[in-house]
Design a protein around this nucleic acid. Sequence first.
RNA 1: GCCCCCGUGGCGGAACUGGUAGACGCGCCUGACUCAAAAUCAGGUUGUCGCAAGGCAGUGCCCGUUCGACUCGGGCCGGGGGCACCA
Length: 928
Amino acid sequence: MTRFLRRTGFHFARKRSRGEAVWRNAAPSNPLTGGDISCPSRPGPPLAPAESMKAERYNAREAEPRWQKIWQERGIFTTANSDPRPKYYVLEMFPYPSGRIHMGHVRNYTMGDVVARYMRAKGMNVLHPMGWDAFGMPAENAAIERKVHPKAWTYENIAAMKAQLKSMGLSLDWSREIATCDPAYYRHQQKMFLDFWQAGLVERKTSKVNWDPVDQTVLANEQVIDGRGWRSGAEVEQRELTQWFFKITAFSQDLLDAIDKLERWPEKVRLMQKNWIGRSEGLLVRFALAAKNAPKGFDEVEVFTTRPDTLFGAAFMALAPDHPLAKAAAQRDPKIAAFIAECRRTGTAQELIDKAEKKGIDTGLRAVHPFDPAWQLPVYVANFIVMDYGTGAIFGCPAHDQRDLDFARKYKLPVVPVVVPEETDAKSFEIANEAYGGDGRLANSRFLDGLAVEAAKEEVARRLEQEKRGNRPVAQRQVQFRLRDWGISRQRYWGCPIPVIHCDACGAVPVPEKDLPVVLPEDVEFDRPGNPLDRHPTWKHVPCPRCKKSARRETDTMDTFVDSSWYFLRFTAPAAKTPTDAKAERYWMPVDQYIGGVEHAILHLLYSRFFTRAMKATGHAHLDEPFKGLFTQGMVVHETYQKPDGAYASPAEIRIETEGEKRRAVLATTGEPLEIGAIEKMSKSKRNTVDPDDILSTYGADTARWFMLSDSPPDRDVIWTEEGVQGAHRFVQRLWRLAHELAEIAAPANAPRPKSFGSAALAVRKSAHAALAHVSEDIERLRFNRCVAHIYEAANALGSAIAEARTAGLLAADLAWAFREAGEILVRVVEPMMPHLAEECAAALGYRKLIAEAPWPALERNLLVEDTITLPVQVNGKKRADVTVARDAGNADIETAVLALDAVKRALDGKRPKKVIVVPQRIVNVVA
RNA sequence: GCCCCCGUGGCGGAACUGGUAGACGCGCCUGACUCAAAAUCAGGUUGUCGCAAGGCAGUGCCCGUUCGACUCGGGCCGGGGGCACCA
């Protein structure tokens, strides 16, 4: 299974123009209807499935695979790059092939599919691809635990998940499928690594990492629990390792600035990214060290501050434990060394140190205040200063920084307020246990007194910039970012090899392009911890490409976030010989609508934004921002059930019993009572998962899709309930029955449009077009729960109209025509959400083509406006009556009509109204 | 600790830009069909007073702006999320 993917690519895609279907595989045409669809799985005319069954119920299990097969055979979801229509690129975050899809996937892919099908109906050339984020640790864990090769495990999982996704009836272009573990994919990633390197966007440097000594690998921060490796339980060490980095910080400012232009991104995500990048403007200030006891080679300390205005409130200076000066001081004072060692130890237990006390030790060194040579500040080493932000040293101003205040109180340092809130007396302003971080005027600050905070910052910067010491200004303005470079080295097997060869003579040498890809060797053992690439007998040993002497391959592989940072670009031309095809990339990018979980709000999305910029810089892309529209969907959550002994029971094992409005859960087998617990994210540990396979086989894909969209706004969590699913399933059946009822009474497919419509027919048309208008708008704004409500409403209205027509006995031609129109609109607007049912209903209505290929109905706007309008009438803001007037009635006429109403007369009690407010087309308020 | 978001019936949620609060669904109640049940169909369902017509209260709590506030402003309470010694 080396090439499981058949990449047909765009050049093989069939050509077709809009509206002209090419149905090469179709069964012989029905002579009466022309290019009919027929169902390859069953003989007979197109109406067979609906008519011949004559069953009372819609059988999703039989119908869904049948339609899926027809769609596939017609290739209607295969997208051509050469299509002249405007493009629309819909993408859902591709899955990790864990082996089974979960409900979160069902929700995610359903949403994307609704958008894709809608845009297709609106005449767009839609790209809606799918692939696999196929590298990663679970495959290696499986290899260790179950002795399966990561590759075999991964591809088996892909096959299983693909089958599951297919059963959902998603309109995906499977011809573009990619798997990131395929050398055909990662070779381009290696090429880009080299290009980035050449462009100065890759760097090799040492950094501190969490090292698991048992598993012999680097752990990500989230894999360290209470200072121990999550798998091995071994105490994690801080190690200095030489690693490869992508220089994402080269784009810090641009990544920040561009966020404002991402208008179709959730505000929440934009804010999270801004905070993550964490820009702050400040001043680098050089503090001279008092000469008498400064260690050799140190005559000053540089400090970064965002509050230079508070310089006269300085009480101390503090150094990070890793600061070079702290290390120098430790060498001659064992007490300082001991303190630094203590800081290192608490360094791993994240949660605990968060609340840890501010602690420090006086080094005995003294720093000189930049504005007053006679003023010396004690220099401490402190546990709350980190080396990798700013300069690893600060000056502490206790009055205006809580941490500094806590520290000052502990070590009895002076607390002098230098910023005083407006309209507060500087003399009486005191700091107790809360630092003052607000705005105000400067005080106790010599030449700064009376200035506003901003002006004081400016004044300090101006003065210190001009002052020189040793030929350099004492201070300079600086912008700091919280964002760090992206370390991509992982001591792992199942990842993209970093295409570098280490030579003792030449250093790190790029693998020549002709030797790409560097393919993972398949003969590896997982019997020992550590990276199998590192101990592979042959793979590692290669001649240096430059000097030909024996050299070693880089055995680290890339962080899997790299794989997912450009897959959306690869989808535009998945078979291209270069990472991207310029023409296809230009046509398709950016992704118009990207849909996925909020958990990727920062890392994946920020890395992708960086990668796209880096690809632009190296000529592989034409734009900076890959995702024009982003939507983050909520989770699927479920009730939990606990037995008296605390063990959890799964939804499949329980039964809900109701007594009036009381619900209680019991174990289905024994009737043992269960406690209904909190509604939580579906997880194995709480056993509150629902298997999509069970739902799909019991109710069918359409029911699952419909329920996923119906209950909650898509960005919020949706509670999966059995009752809700059954409700969705009832609607599936109801629509199906409705279609069959309509088939009996509606006008034939090509009946001529009546010249005019009576009131009954008009009402049917109005309700259908109102639904059409609402559904269109709500899909465009991704408000799927409202689409669902409007479809319910339309179906209810249509059902009532049919019942009325039945009662009346006589069916006028105009009403029969309106019924047909309404039925077709209803089926069409249902299709993005329940595509199989829509096809089935359309067939029942005598529709001869695929509804999935039918254009979106044209909206007749004039049906949305009424001749008369009913306005609510308020008296003093409380609704008392309604008034019906002509749509274009003047305010004076409305006022007269309102004052004539009984309810208004009663409320006014014979008095004259003070005022009558008429809000056109909205409301009337009478002020008594 | 800092930043952000959210509080509406028994439940999930509607309510466009300040203009009829509770659309639609779930659940529940009543009725029809049935020997019965399921399914289906019809009706009801914010609370409260009332036989009714209708009245009163009501969108976490308090205050304000407005002819009019779920919506805007201030304060508080509760829930969720992000970041975390970021100088």
